[in-house]
Design a binder for these strands. Structure first.
Lengths: 234, 234
DNA sequence: TAGTGGTCTAGACCACCCG
DNA sequence: GGGTGGTCTAGACCACTAT
């Protein structure tokens, strides 16, 4: 049964390994042959086999340990990942037209809850921005954002009338850490007004906090219009 | 300024590149030196530099094109990913105790909406399971699941009294595709009863559909207790 | 301690695609 | 057309860890 293959590339090897896992040739929790053996089988080198198996491990299908070998995981789903979308990309991906609208913009001292959440000194100046994102002119997302002026002073000269703070920040901040969370919240009067939904309606809400080298840059709450569905295929 | 470095490993190179992006040495949209040049600078080989840059590209920080070179992306966040948790892992990760409880289990013909959703023939037999997951004995998640008996016949002999269908499926199905989506729904009488929440309360809801080589295996709705927050750090 | 994966080197050929 | 990244080879040494 041990045949020589014409397969050479790490992609081919990945595919063969995947097929064998799917067909039960290598069942969950079983141990694969060593890289050296597989290299011989595929008429390839260990380097190439290594890359194939390493990528499959990164993707969550295999677990690799020195000496113990390469084991088939029983639940690839455990490591499944979601892509966090950008509003504009997301709207355009559906083929709908995208429109941005500024609702409110003002400079003020950080409210206490924000200062606490972002570890700011109490009276630090922040820019508050409230804006809407529409898909085919229907409400898609209400964005409520706070930006720390001390970290991004240039923000005070931006009016955000024609485009949102997100795209501006993205081009301004070289690299950031991100804290992202999702909840279901009850729509209040303000949210309902902008999303054109009944008060009390459940609304999928994302909270985003962005950091630049340890300093808090911005806090945003994104309220999705009712019926919105965040989807992924793996 | 062009100094020889002692750095050798691809990890070291990754870190230096990240630092230069953060410090603006290589700003957004700029082009990095070629792999050959970087290999010379780091006293390394092109293979090693290639691995470092390739991984950074996979992680969403760089974009690479033949001839065009390697470009710094302005928004690493666009590609940010989220790990989909498993109930039991998630509960235990918080340090809380995990408890499972079966609520209902019966075999029946697939309801129309399910047949439509999963592309089943109308009268196909399915196993219906309703169960609860508790964290420190407080309601954590209500799971409502349908399993296609034809695809997984062994399921008909399982009683799911001591452990949930998810862990059972995971060990039975070698490899699967997954469709996962999140919504905010309004708690109805049934959900409220199990999650111990007022009727009408917003509930974060995950819908999961699992496929095995094109055949639908299972459909699950997971209702999280109010206040639940799905979080990620990047 | 022996076996397995982790990584690096030095070199090569190729595919792509910008100018 | 030529420069850049994509990938493979053949070999080496090392790090970890199950037994």
């Amino acid at each position: 049964m041990t045949q020589t293959h014409r397969n050479k590339s790490y992609r081919d090897i990945k595919q063969v390994v995947m097929e064998r896992m799917q067909n039960g040739v290598w069942s969950p929790n079983s141990i694969l042959p060593s890289e050296t053996d597989l290299a011989a089988e595929f008429s390839s080198t260990r380097t190439t086999v290594n890359r194939a198996l390493r990528e499959l491990a990164d993707e969550g299908y295999l677990e690799r340990k020195r000496k113990a070998g390469t084991r088939v995981l029983n639940s690839p789903i455990r490591k499944a990942k979601f892509i966090i979308p950008t509003v504009e990309d997301e709207v355009k991906a559906t083929g709908a037209s995208y429109r941005y609208s500024l609702v409110e913009r003002r400079v003020q001292d950080a409210p206490k809850w924000l200062a606490s959440r972002l570890e700011l000194t109490p009276a630090q100046e922040v820019l508050f921005v409230r804006c809407m994102h529409y898909a085919d002119n229907a409400p898609f997302q209400l964005e409520v954002r706070w930006i720390v002026a001390e970290v991004v002073p240039e923000v005070l000269t931006e009016n955000f009338e024609s485009s949102g703070p997100n795209s501006w920040l993205v081009n301004k901040i070289p690299f950031t850490n991100l804290e992202y969370s999702l909840t279901a919240t009850k729509s209040d009067a303000e949210i309902s007004e902008f999303l054109d939904a009944p008060i009390g309606e459940p609304v999928l809400t994302a909270e985003r906090i962005t950091w630049l080298r340890g300093a808090p840059v911005t806090h945003a709450k994104l309220y999705f219009a009712p019926g919105y569905r965040l989807t992924t295929h793996i």
